[in-house]
Design a protein around this nucleic acid. Structure first.
Lengths: 115, 115
DNA sequence: TATCAGTATTCATTTTAAAACATACTGAAA
DNA sequence: TTTCAGTATGTTTTAAAATGAATACTGATA
């Protein structure tokens, strides 16, 4: 008879670029919230993160991607805003596709862990 | 013609237990160093980590595993030491097996990422 | 041409985790 | 019964990261 502790396997996936971690689930959530709210400010509020932090993440993503993932609009009606580029939308779907395939595999591979 | 930025997929794997993350590559390295050096003190030095921290990780592992992964020896010749239990040795091999299977799969699945 | 909300940027403050320090405790062996 | 190196544990420093506050900038539109 065995102890009944439950263990499960967790997998984290991210895209690495020459200067280090480039795109993981955190930035993907940020992209999704920008898409949903139309601005970095509101996306940040949604996620309860500081605007400054969100802005820096967007800046970093845009500089390190082959082409910008977020288009920022300065001034004008409503002060401006931010929206995803085609590349930004693509990044979300590609990321989730890859993540899903790997997590499904991991789940299938690991049943009844014991430690 | 396309930009030549290189992207790669990174995967991190760890074992989760009811109270959160239980065993990842960091603790595995610690186990390996304990195995190699025969004490927590020397394992910590090897890894340039504080003894206190290493000791706490061992404590946590032992309490949350079904049975202890590290056997600690108090006092005596040389002040004591630490060695892996059978369960500790098993944990290392099982962890690496799982990790390898998943990383191999991830590598195979993802070629030519673009962002 | 004044307004307005969001972007852009700097600086001070808080939070956090990690490391460093200090000090008992343990027990085989000389 | 003293020595000794490693375990055990609390306290203090340090360093890094996140947050918060403050301020200037932008430009369509009323």
């Amino acid at each position: 008879m065995n102890n009944s502790k439950k263990y499960s396997l967790e997998v984290r996936v991210w895209i690495e670029e020459s200067d280090g971690p480039f795109l993981g689930i955190g930035k993907i959530w940020l992209l999704e919230n920008i898409q949903k709210t139309g601005s970095i400010t509101n996306a940040a509020k949604e996620m309860k993160m500081a605007y400054r932090q969100a802005w820096q993440l967007v800046e970093e993503m845009n500089q390190r991607a082959e082409s910008p993932l977020v288009e920022k609009l300065l001034g004008g009606k409503g002060g401006g805003g931010a929206k995803l580029t085609k590349a930004g939308e693509k990044a979300i779907t590609v990321f989730y596709e890859i993540e899903k395939r790997i997590k499904d595999f991991a789940l299938k591979e690991t049943q009844n862990l014991k430690f």
